[in-house]
Amino acid sequence: MPFHTAPLGRRRFLALSGASAAGLVIAGCGDDEEPAQTTPAEEPPPEPMADVTLDFATTAGVLNYAYALELLEAEFYAQVTGEFYAEATEAERMILEQVGAHEQVHVDFLGAVLADDAAQGLEFNFEAVDFADRMSVLTTASTFENLGVGAYNGAAQFLARLASQGDELATTALMAAGDIVSVEARHASVIAAQIETGQDASFAPNAFDEAMTPQQVIEAAQPFIRQQIAVTNADPQGG
């Protein structure tokens, strides 16, 4: 059975083009707020609007989380390889091109799995990156790869809980995430070695990698994403 035809269950996350989707979720608020005019003198400042809410109680929500991060990476490497910094060595070019190609494969894969549920219209903001500067490019790459490792490691438990509730797509998503996370770790290791020439411990700074919460990951990624991202049902159980 083609994977993308597996039932996705209730579609509780929202497409990015909020107006065309079921509606917007306001981060941190219910959707039944009191009308403001009842207490005009104490009207609070408006909550920031979330353009997209990732629901970690759904497999599609978790997959869109991964999809957004892979899109971010793929777009970054597309810009890097579109016009390399001047002193890029042949080895660095090969590494960055291959890493970028892997991220695009991840995007293609997750997009196919999500099919109609894939988040649309995400836009990225790389104003903080100087693409002409080697260290800016490599440290940003390192940040994104390590973020990917932490994100996948931390997302697994949400997929495992969905899988143990009988969600077959979650089982498959968990296995695929497991196949992808180690590739992100390989990227992180190789890029660290470009920065530090491989003769120190930065390729694997700790014996145990992080398993980051969705909140930690989105906080780190948000400056690079134009839309406002929110997460829901994203507290690790018992954590």
Binding site: N153, A156, G178, S182, V183, A185, A204, D209, E210
Partner: peptide, 10 residues
């Protein structure tokens, strides 16, 4: 998994 990705780095 937090060990798994470290093996990949190695």
């Amino acid at each position: 998994l937090t060990i798994h990705s470290v093996e990949a780095r190695h």
